[in-house]
Each structure stands twice: as structure tokens, then as C-alpha cells.
């Protein structure tokens, strides 16, 4: 099989790689590039553990051919924040107790980011709907939704605070 040369922006850095036409994005990320933060939970697009951002949208990297990201921008959990500078969602996941086993966490974080990037003030229901493709077996989702809501609230420079809104 002839390899395909692709170029894409991965976590802010331009990367050039040669890929087999049938190579999946998840395998490119994990096995070739060593970015193991993205997880394989089912390999069939059912669980969302492999969620990454493709041009800002949350996608299952186990269902995408690597060649498909040519010319695109990809963000994985490694590009979201670092030990020194956590993304607000990462901070909130820690503070709110949204992490138990942590296997769904990277995908969950990226799904949450893709929501907040287009809707800075989602309701709890909108959050629940947006992460419905990311399965979590540990938390019952409550604290995950709490964490996302917390960031949404902080992000809108709340004069608002939820309590003030409820009291209105």
C-alpha cells in the first residue's frame, strides 16, 4: 500500500507524517506519535473515550482515517493544558471530583471544550446532551456536568452567578 503524506496542525504544532490509507487517526496518535492520552474504549464509536477535536469539533478518532485530517487542526488532551498551566476545564474536573477512573476523562474534557467554544452559557441539559456520546461508568455524570457548568459560569465573567439568576 502506498503511503500518503499528510500535514496537519496537532496541538498547535504543524506535523508532517506519512500514513497508510487505512490507518486510523487513533492509531496515528497513540501508536505512531505516542500521544496516549486519547483512549480506546470500544473502537467502534460508541463510547467517546477517543474523542479529539477536529477543527474545533468533537469527533471519535477511532472512526476517522488519519489521512482525513490532512490540512486540519487536531487537538488532543495533551494540547489542552499542561502541569504548569491547566485548562480551566481540567482545573474544574479536579476541583469538582469529576474524575474517578479517568479513562473517559480526556474525551470528556474535549467534548466539553467543543461545547463551551460555541456556547459559553450552556444549561445543564445542553451540557448533558452534548456529552451524551461520552460514556462514563464511574461518576453518574453529575460531577462532570457540575465541572463543565462551573467553567461555563466562570467564563462568562459572571456578574451573573447562577444563584443571582435563579433569584431573578
Amino acid at each position: 500500500m502506498d503511503k500518503i503524506k499528510i500535514q496537519f496542525v496537532l496541538n498547535g504544532e504543524t506535523r508532517q507524517v506519512e500514513v497508510e490509507p487505512d490507518l486510523l487517526l487513533i492509531d496515528l496518535l497513540r501508536e505512531r506519535l505516542g500521544l496516549t492520552g486519547t483512549k480506546v474504549g470500544c473502537g467502534e464509536g460508541d463510547c467517546g473515550a477517543c474523542t479529539v477535536l477536529l477543527n474545533g469539533k468533537n469527533v471519535n478518532s477511532c472512526l476517522l482515517l488519519a489521512a482525513r485530517v490532512n490540512g486540519c487542526e487536531v487537538v488532543t488532551v495533551e494540547g489542552l493544558g499542561s502541569y504548569d498551566k491547566l485548562h480551566p476545564l481540567q482545573e474544574a474536573f479536579i476541583a469538582e471530583g469529576a474524575v474517578q477512573c479517568g479513562f473517559c476523562t480526556p474525551g470528556m474534557l474535549l467534548s466539553a471544550k467543543s461545547l463551551l467554544d460555541v456556547n459559553a452559557r450552556p444549561t445543564r441539559e445542553e451540557i448533558a446532551r452534548h456529552i451524551a456520546g461520552n460514556l462514563c461508568r464511574c461518576t453518574g455524570y453529575t460531577k462532570i456536568i457540575n465541572a463543565i457548568e462551573k467553567v461555563a459560569c466562570a467564563d462568562r465573567h459572571c456578574a451573573c452567578s447562577r444563584e443571582a439568576e435563579e433569584g431573578r
Binding site: 463510547c47 455524570y141 456536568i145
Partner: peptide, 17 residues
């Protein structure tokens, strides 16, 4: 034997606890 046919509760199924 996969999550398309063995359904787990999603964020939309879980009640207020």
C-alpha cells in the same frame, strides 16, 4: 457484545441524585 447493543446509562438517562 458492544456498546451499540449493550446499552449503558448516558448523561441523558441519569436522574438528579
Amino acid at each position: 457484545c458492544n456498546f451499540a447493543t449493550y446499552l449503558l446509562p448516558t448523561s441523558l438517562d441519569v436522574p438528579e441524585i
